[in-house]
């Protein structure tokens, strides 16, 4: 968690960890073979894939698969759209859900159980049953006829459908923090709300970062909501835009192109994941130790 320091290798320690290394290496190797195949297939040709030669590259590397996948649709616009949707919703989700999760996990009051149960059941209702009625309601209000309003609606919905998940996820992280911190703060005369933002919020950092990563990926990959609600091409998210491409490659039998499209979809999420987890966890948790 701390910034990597140049440390002398403690061989005794490393030896004890050897079984761990072996297990991890085996799994990583397995992952590499599998994902390597996907990546290899994206640079291969369809006949080679289905003859079982995806990784032999007998006819060379086919970067044109990527060119084809990229040029097919307005990819950069989809990217910007998704980035905006995902960033705004992730930030708002944390600001909305962290306080709620804190209160739900810390205080007992009449509606607490009811709210928790409501959130839990909301997670169990299949998305179709939520999204289609909402669509009928919102569409008949005429909101979708204006691009800006439509965009705002989309972001609000992304936030809304992830509220129960984020809240329930975060509850554990607050309930596991010892109450002594608040008690100490109270003695020092710090008001509870300030205590939350100054002390509890930073202490739940790992949970906040983890759930933000999940939320980001959820929104980035979200398909059904944007399919139904993005009434114009200008509003389309990456998932809808590029999954369309994946489908069209499938229907025209261009499997190599499909894998290239897949890599294009997943690469930004992966880079952002590394960015988010490494930079934020690395920069923050080091500073706050109980």
């Amino acid at each position: 968690m701390e910034k990597p320091k140049v440390k002398k290798v403690n061989w005794k320690k490393e030896l004890r960890l050897a079984p761990g290394y072996i297990i991890l290496l085996l799994w990583v190797l397995f992952t590499f073979v599998l994902l390597g195949w996907v990546f290899g297939a994206s640079l291969s040709t369809t006949p080679e894939i289905f003859k079982g030669n995806a990784l032999k590259f007998e006819s060379g590397l086919h970067f044109e698969n990527y060119a084809k996948a990229w040029s097919g649709s307005n990819v950069s616009e989809f990217f910007v759209n998704s980035l905006v949707y995902a960033t705004i919703s992730c930030v708002v989700l944390i600001l909305v859900c962290a306080p709620a999760a804190y209160v739900l996990s810390r205080y007992t009051f009449k509606l607490n159980k009811l709210i928790q149960t409501g959130f839990a059941s909301a997670m169990g209702v299949p998305a179709v049953m939520v999204i289609l009625p909402l669509f009928s309601m919102i569409a008949s209000m005429g909101i979708l006829n204006n691009v800006t309003l439509n965009r705002i609606t989309l972001v609000l919905l992304y936030i809304g459908i992830n509220v129960p998940y984020t809240t329930i996820f975060l509850m554990t992280f607050f309930s596991n923090i010892s109450r002594t911190y608040e008690e100490a703060a109270a003695i020092d005369g710090c008001p509870p709300m300030k205590t939350f933002w100054k002390i509890m919020f930073p202490m739940a950092q790992t949970g906040l970062v983890t759930v933000t990563i999940f939320n980001f990926i959820n929104v980035w990959n979200e398909y059904f909501l944007s399919l139904i609600f993005a009434s114009s091409d200008k509003l389309r998210s990456v998932a809808v835009g590029l999954y369309g491409m994946i489908n069209s490659m499938k229907y025209t039998g261009d499997w190599a192109g499909m894998f290239a499209a897949v890599v294009i979809v997943f690469l930004p999420t992966f880079i952002l994941y590394i960015f988010l987890s490494e930079k934020i966890i690395g920069g923050v948790t080091g500073g706050i130790k109980g």
């Binding site: 600001l95 909305v96 859900c97 306080p99 709620a100 709210i115 409501g118 959130f119 059941s121 909301a122 209702v125 049953m129 939520v130 999204i131 009625p133 909402l134 309601m137 609000l156 919905l157 936030i159 809304g160 459908i161 509220v163 129960p164 809240t167």
Partner: peptide, 14 residues
């Protein structure tokens, strides 16, 4: 805020 989001997005559909 969280409950409001929940009510608007989930209550009616549920």
């Amino acid at each position: 805020p969280a409950v409001l989001f929940f009510l608007v997005v989930f209550l009616y559909p549920i």
